[in-house]
C-alpha cells in the first residue's frame, strides 16, 4: 500500500516538475500517462533532462526507445544545461541527464548525484548562421567583427558562449556583439527574424533551422569542440530503464539519429 502511495507521489512530483520545467521556458515535456501493463524486461516511466540543443534528437530518441521497449514511457524536459543542473540539485526527479558540456556534468558528479562515470555521446561545433540572403555578406569568422555588422552571440556564461570566447581567444578576432543571449535558441531566433546580420550557433542548430537560416562553416570552429556527456542519476526510481536509455543513446541506433542531426562522434 505505502509503496503504491509512494509511487503515486513520485509520478505526481515528476509531472509537477516537468510542468514547471516547461513553464521556465524550454519545450513542453511530452506528457504521457504511464502504462504498466505487459511487462517484458523494462517497465515504468523515466524522465530525461536534456540540454536545449538536444531537443529534436532526444525527442526522437525517446520515441524510438519507447517503440523498442513497450511499456516504457520516456518523458523529456529540455533547457539550458546549467538550469537543468540547478533543478536536479534542487531535487527534480530526473532519471537521466544529458549535458551540452562537461563542466555542467562535472557539477553533478561533484555533488555525487551521478551513478557511473558519464559517457560522452556526441560533439558539436559552432557555425556562423546568417539570415537568408546573407545581407551583410559574411564569409569568414573575421567578417563578424567588421564595423556595422550586427553579430549576436551567446553570453560567456553559457556553453555556446564559452566556445565563442575560446575561438575569439584562439584567433585573436575580438567580436563586439550587439547582444549576448542567455541561450543558443535566442541567437538563432535573432538571426531567423533578420534582426541580426549573423550569429554563432551550433552546427546542429543551423541544420534544425534549414531554410530559415544559412550556415557558414569556418575552420576556426575546431578550436572549440563541445563534448556532450550523458549519465543515469542516483536519485532514479527506475535505474534499470535509466541505464538502458543511456546505453541506447550510445548504441549505433542512437548514434545514427545524432549523426543525422549534425552531431559529431565523441
Amino acid at each position: 500500500m505505502t509503496q503504491i502511495r509512494k509511487l503515486a507521489l513520485l509520478v505526481v512530483g515528476a509531472a509537477l516538475v516537468a510542468g514547471l520545467a516547461a513553464c521556465s521556458s524550454a519545450t513542453p515535456a511530452t506528457s504521457t500517462s504511464p502504462k504498466g501493463t505487459a511487462a517484458p524486461k523494462l517497465t515504468g516511466s523515466i524522465t530525461v533532462y536534456g540540454a536545449a540543443s538536444l531537443t529534436a534528437t532526444f525527442t526522437e530518441l525517446a520515441t524510438e526507445f519507447e517503440a523498442a521497449n513497450p511499456g516504457v514511457t520516456v518523458q523529456t524536459a529540455f533547457n539550458g544545461s546549467s538550469v537543468l543542473v540547478t533543478q536536479i540539485q534542487g531535487g527534480a526527479p530526473a532519471d537521466v541527464f544529458a549535458s551540452a558540456d562537461t563542466a555542467n556534468m562535472t557539477k553533478l558528479m561533484t555533488a555525487n548525484l551521478v551513478t557511473d562515470t558519464p559517457v560522452d555521446f556526441a560533439t558539436n561545433v559552432l557555425e556562423i548562421a546568417v539570415p537568408t540572403g546573407n545581407p551583410a555578406r559574411i564569409t569568414t569568422f573575421a567578417d563578424l567583427a567588421k564595423p556595422g555588422v550586427k553579430t549576436v552571440v551567446c553570453a560567456p556564461a553559457v556553453p555556446c558562449g564559452a566556445a565563442t570566447l575560446a575561438i575569439e581567444t584562439a584567433t585573436g578576432v575580438k567580436l563586439t556583439p550587439v547582444s549576448e543571449e542567455t541561450a543558443v535558441t535566442g541567437v538563432l531566433s535573432k538571426v531567423q527574424t533578420g534582426e541580426a546580420d549573423a550569429g554563432l550557433v551550433y552546427v546542429t542548430d543551423v541544420k534544425g533551422a534549414a531554410g530559415k537560416v544559412v550556415g557558414i562553416t569556418f575552420p576556426e570552429s575546431s578550436k572549440a569542440v563541445n563534448t556532450y556527456p550523458i549519465a543515469a542519476l542516483k536519485a532514479s526510481a527506475n535505474p534499470k530503464t535509466a541505464a538502458a536509455f543511456v546505453a541506447f543513446v550510445t548504441s549505433s541506433a542512437g548514434q545514427k539519429v545524432l549523426a543525422a542531426a549534425g552531431f559529431g562522434k565523441p
Binding site: 550587439v178 547582444s179 535566442g186
Partner: peptide
C-alpha cells in the same frame, strides 16, 4: 525584453 531587445550589459 529577452525576445525583442536582446541582452547586452
Amino acid at each position: 525584453t529577452l525576445t525583442f531587445a536582446g541582452s547586452l550589459q
